[in-house]
């Protein structure tokens, strides 16, 4: 049975008209001990089938090619642009529920049709010159979470020093416990700076400046 009903598909199709260039989606799954891998595969397959601008490559974690992405948890989704450039934009876990919004925003971003930011903000983002790793812990029922994920991904898209990943807290209980996640969205920047809630871009930027 289709995971995404026709009504939603039609809505998504209209949104995908915004896609500018091709986006190559890579899904890395694991055969065993991955409860959500097959659902995620169905979901991502149905999503990428909606637009001709989207391609999908499914890899197993044991494939050599999968190892190049430095992924340690499964399922993992990576968004590459038309030239297969990796911006460091990842989703760990199925981006369904509310998170379908950040997944769509990520696709639009990597296609080159993301929202234009004011010039001074662009300057600040481009000035980030140290390696930044942003983890955004979310749950699928959280209305504020996609905003936080999309902002982190936007930073990653705009600056090669930034990597940003969504982590679905219920799928990845162990790492969520390690980072003490009991409220979402929880944003962890370079392991020790924490932000709670859907913060404005400025809050991300000042946290990064203060590292």
């Amino acid at each position: 049975m289709a995971m995404i009903d026709d009504n939603s598909k039609n809505q998504i199709k209209t949104i995908f008209e915004q896609l500018k260039e091709q986006v190559n989606v890579v899904l890395i799954v694991k055969k065993e001990e991955c409860e959500t891998c097959s659902d995620t595969q169905t979901f991502v397959t149905e999503m990428t089938d909606i637009s001709e601008k989207l391609t999908l490559e499914v890899l197993d974690e044991s494939d050599d090619k999968a190892k190049e992405f430095g992924v340690t948890m499964y399922p993992a989704i990576i968004l590459l642009d038309k030239d297969n450039k990796d911006y460091g934009i990842k989703f760990y876990g199925i981006p369904a529920g509310h998170e379908i919004n950040s997944f769509i925003m990520g696709l639009i971003e990597v296609s080159g049709a993301g929202e234009q930011l004011p010039e001074d903000v662009v300057k600040k983002i481009e000035a980030i010159n140290k390696p930044i790793d942003i983890k955004v812990f979310i749950t699928l029922s959280c209305p504020h979470c996609p905003g936080a994920v999309a902002k982190a991904h936007k930073l990653a898209f705009m600056n090669k020093n930034v990597n940003a990943e969504m982590i679905e807290a219920n799928t990845f209980g162990e790492i969520s416990t390690k980072y003490n996640v009991s409220g979402v969205p929880k944003i962890v920047i370079n392991e020790d700076t924490e932000l709670l809630g859907d913060q404005p871009l400025n809050a991300f930027l000042s946290a990064i400046e203060n590292l």
Partner: peptide, 14 residues
Amino acid sequence: GKGVSYCAICDGSL
């Protein structure tokens, strides 16, 4: 954010 929450639908599933 370490147990205290103001959004049950966000954090309930944890």
